[in-house]
Design a protein around this nucleic acid. Structure first.
Lengths: 248, 248
DNA sequence: CGGTACATTGAAGGGGCTCAATCCACGTGG
DNA sequence: CCACGTGGATTGAGCCCCTTCAATGTACCG
């Protein structure tokens, strides 16, 4: 049952703790029921009740809320290896909707299975806890973006953050990567209007900082872009691996 | 060693799971080293390294980031019973600063102590995990606020959210509560300017929805305010207590 | 009683939105 | 192979929400 590439969630947690064969087996089981989701389809619908989490195995998905009058805010973008269904699954009804950006494959995972982990595989539970904490840090950065940065800073920051996250899973190079988002999605993620996102992208292009076209991002001047965005990548991958490993 | 009022963190987790005497004792120990923090003092400084979490026992604290040019975004407001130091403690250096709003008391808690919980007290670890998930939900709502709501909707939503959170710990009544925030803090929390917050508060007052003066919030028309803010309180307290208790 | 922190108000400006077209790429059916 | 439809990108004009700047007012405190 050897796979050509490591399973996404396994890969992710392996960067946090040393996985025993036992633990790897549990994780493999978590990722063993691939289910295909068509492009644009909703994976989780706000207000419904769910008894399971999902591991995103392949593709990208967006978590969002839409308000009464149609305004939409995208909360985050899930990448392969991410657990989706948090934190909604802790509540009686899902708080947000999640839908597949392109075609996705996910693996369902009963909620109780995660809870059982706390008793049977505490190190795995801690690692998952940990990776969810990182997700919370992403929310916080996103909040800073939307609350206190100008449109151009926001877009720049977003593009750099996506690059860093994608690099960590081998989906981005040093100066370019594929970003399967329409400008409308970008706008809803950043709290801007579509038209202004377009104008901002043009500005970034004209200043030779970064080019976004045909869902392909090409970074022309990383340093200038990072300076503009006040981008610190430390919050994405710089974990306290040593201390954690020692303690568990 | 019976205390007159239940310890805040104990109180909080007791709403999630049935606590055994053993577990209660562990929690009591967590809250056993009260340390006084003066009003306005910084509890955590961005960029420094920390090996401990803190339980906020009394008072309120704000978590925030300040950008190079002085712009500040407040990420959340910690209330008694909240763990502070998350998620920053998972990183090499604190990602955000935290400072005491009024006078606070906190109890330090070695990071390793939390990790050990996963091995020794899985149910407590799960409950803490859970409560942090709720915090993440607050971040998400905050993000929706700042990203897609107008100033008046934002302020209204914030005031209602604070009321609900404070009610849960017995610090707010049905129609009024104390909110020890200056308008500047409010502005930095909501991504607005001080002056506009002031104007927005006036507008809310003139429309007989809510009055905020002298750090006292008085809600005049809850329903109208909730309608304006599109406020759903479900994300704050509606946890899946039954299922969780059964699973553990 | 002066100082400091916070609240309040007004005027003017700008960043980002709305409205309204046009354009472009691409898939589909004739 | 072309006509057409559709989703997305682009551009422009006008406006409004919110900011900035500047000043005054007000409570509290030593």
């Amino acid at each position: 049952m050897a796979s050509e590439r490591a399973l996404p969630l396994t890969q992710k947690l392996a960067r946090l703790i040393e996985l025993s064969a036992d633990e790897a087996a549990v994780l493999a089981e978590f990722q063993g029921n691939p289910r295909r989701i068509a492009r644009g389809r909703e994976i989780v619908v706000e207000g419904r009740k769910y008894d399971q989490l999902l591991v995103l195995l392949d593709g990208m998905a967006v978590r969002y809320r839409v308000l009464q009058d149609g305004r939409r805010q995208i909360l985050n973008i899930a990448l392969p290896g991410d657990l989706i269904g948090f934190p909604g699954c802790f509540f009686e009804h899902a708080l947000y909707s999640i839908s597949a950006l392109g075609e996705c494959t996910v693996s369902p995972l009963p909620f109780a299975g995660i809870l059982a982990l706390f008793e049977t595989r505490p190190r795995l539970a801690a690692a998952i806890f940990w990776s969810l904490s990182c997700e919370t840090a992403l929310y916080a950065e996103h909040l800073i973006d939307v609350g206190r940065r100008s449109a151009i800073e926001r877009v720049a920051h977003f593009l750099l953050e996506m690059q860093t996250r994608l690099q960590a899973i081998g989906l981005a190079g040093d100066d370019s990567y594929r970003l399967p988002l329409t400008q409308e999605l970008l706008a809803d993620a950043l709290g801007l209007s579509v038209q202004y996102v377009n104008q901002t992208l043009r500005q970034l292009r004209e200043e030779n900082l970064v080019i976004v076209e045909r869902q392909q991002v090409t970074i022309l001047d990383y340093d200038a872009l990072a300076a503009l965005a006040d981008f610190e990548r430390t919050y994405i991958n710089r974990f306290r691996i040593a201390e954690f490993a020692a303690a568990t």
